[in-house]
């Protein structure tokens, strides 16, 4: 019954790996980061990202090639 043995090994392996990651407090990192100067720290509203995808209007029905039309 190799198939059921394989399922048991995978199932126990997943429990061990996921349990270890949970106990370590792991979460996926879903962000990019950059450094901001002191002037922006003093006035956070003035923050402007250097990443083009972040700034400006993005059209909801874009084709290939982006769809970013305006930066700041």
């Amino acid at each position: 019954m190799n198939h059921l043995n394989l399922h048991a090994i995978l199932g126990v392996g997943l429990l061990v790996v996921c349990g270890a990651l949970i106990s370590a407090g792991w979460v996926p990192h879903e962000a990019v980061s950059e450094q901001i100067p002191q002037t922006v720290r003093d006035n956070p509203a003035s923050f402007r990202s250097s990443y083009v995808y972040y700034t400006g209007w993005r059209t909801p029905t874009t084709g290939s090639g982006g769809g970013y039309s305006s930066g700041k």
Partner: peptide, 12 residues
Amino acid sequence: LNLDTGDAYLID
């Protein structure tokens, strides 16, 4: 924005 270290994290 981290005001102490200057790290800015942009959320996807």
